[in-house]
Design a binder for these strands. Structure first.
Lengths: 252, 252
DNA sequence: CCCTCCTTGTGCACTCGCTCACAAGCGCGC
DNA sequence: GCGCGCTTGTGAGCGAGTGCACAAGGAGGG
């Protein structure tokens, strides 16, 4: 791993395309799996398979980070894992605040998949005074008027909006005013943020509508279901053993 | 996504680009808002503003559906609403099955935003026999081995995977084998489906990692927070009234 | 009936991302 | 030491999506 050819400066080596950034977490996840199997080297082809993308894309994506592979051999799993972690900021602690502790907010607070990657729920905030003081997963719900102090004192960098749609913009404004620069919006509403603030949105209803669009073009929901010609029997034969596996594994 | 949008030549007037399909739900939502205000006509510019996109894009997107506008006037709100509803299949009933009734599955089952658009939770399925029989939001949890009958009898067309990652592929196979052709995957795992089955995924951890990537490039989480030069005071002045509004509106 | 105003619909140029194909380069065996 | 096989890294071509700018064309007033 000799130093990168070209500018070996502490800043960004190259500009990483947005599409690549969105795939880095997939590679990260695949690499964690591989590392757990005590495998020390992985090819772009194998990594592509595990991440559900194509091999050329993997190579090009990884080349944006630097020349971390060895021709004829592949990528060192641990080293690549470290590089991607560093690039994504997964070596740090990222305190997160959840605004709106309804169904979704509670589910997010209880979700165990975050902490492992360094995303730690550091605050639960709600405007409903009846909810304030209640605990969810060991964390007390706090009033939204305390947001500025909470954000400042706990160094909160990411805010999640899990409120009804009609207050999403107000909540976003409050988060921005408090100093939050990254927002993940779960409310089904268009939310604008000023320059310098990142916003991503997750909208379940939209995903369903996209699915229903394509399902319509397949013959609609009422049409008689004919087996897909390819692979139907394979899947069906795997059904029994699938059930066995599920009973052990699926904890919800 | 796995299925190519262009393949079915069953009477589609034009092929609608995938990017446009993904925006139709935004227009739909904006139009519903407009219709509630008793406004009968809307321009592409106004619609763009409400949907959070650019006006030329709105016009091009809508032109794929047909020439539904009137030059010099705009679009008829009710008519356009009807056309988009029809295109997205929102005039129909779409029974949905949720597999995996943990935190996320329960939150999805309780979420009220679906039914209004025709997406009705018709089944809750889990592999854990201790959960079977319990009710969530008035719907009993059923054993996963009953999935084939459930899907067939209730005409279920969409399946949501809300299980742990390591069983997501098995659950997807079971859904496909049972006849489901549209899947929304919430499990943080790569899931492959055969041709003819649509799959979309929602991964909260990935969204957070993307946010943290960009936040790192802004100066990182530990840096002292300096107010954004532009607009900071405006936002802050709006803070008090924002709180007032929130107390009335935010029900969580 | 015509003219003007307004907004739609779209041709065009540009950017971004994807895929292919292949040269470059590393390790290993002979 | 040398070639051989394997895998990376990347240049080039291509297709999708975006935004501009403008022609096309209703509506309404004079």
């Amino acid at each position: 791993m000799s130093d990168r050819p070209g500018r070996g400066h502490s800043g960004t080596p190259r500009r990483i395309p947005e599409a690549t950034v969105a795939r880095l977490p997939l590679y990260y996840r695949a690499l964690v799996d591989i590392a757990e199997h005590r495998i020390s080297t992985v090819s772009s082809e194998r990594l592509a398979e595990l991440a559900g993308v194509n091999a050329a894309k993997v190579r090009k994506d990884l080349s944006y980070l630097g020349s971390y592979g060895t021709r004829g051999v592949g990528y060192d799993v641990e080293f690549l894992l470290h590089q991607i972690s560093r690039e994504l900021g997964l070596t740090r602690d990222w305190p997160v605040a959840i605004v709106g502790v309804g169904n979704l907010g509670q589910a997010l607070a209880n979700y165990k998949g975050f902490g492992a990657r360094g995303f730690r729920i550091a605050a639960l905030v709600d405007a409903d005074d009846d909810k304030v003081g209640r605990e969810v997963d060991g964390l007390a719900i706090e009033p939204i008027r305390a947001l500025p102090e909470i954000v400042a004192e706990r160094q909160i960098s990411i805010g999640m909006i899990a409120t009804p749609a009609h207050v999403a913009q107000e909540v976003a404004d409050l988060l921005v005013a408090a100093g939050v620069r990254s927002i993940l919006n779960f409310a089904p509403a268009v939310v604008a943020v000023p320059d310098g603030v990142s916003m991503r949105k997750v909208d379940l209803a939209i995903e369903l509508q996209i699915l229903s669009f394509y399902q319509l073009r397949k013959g609609g929901p009422a049409r008689r279901r004919d087996r897909a010609a390819t692979g139907a029997m394979d899947v069906e034969e795997g059904l029994e053993q699938g059930l066995d596996g599920l009973h052990q594994g699926m904890a919800g």
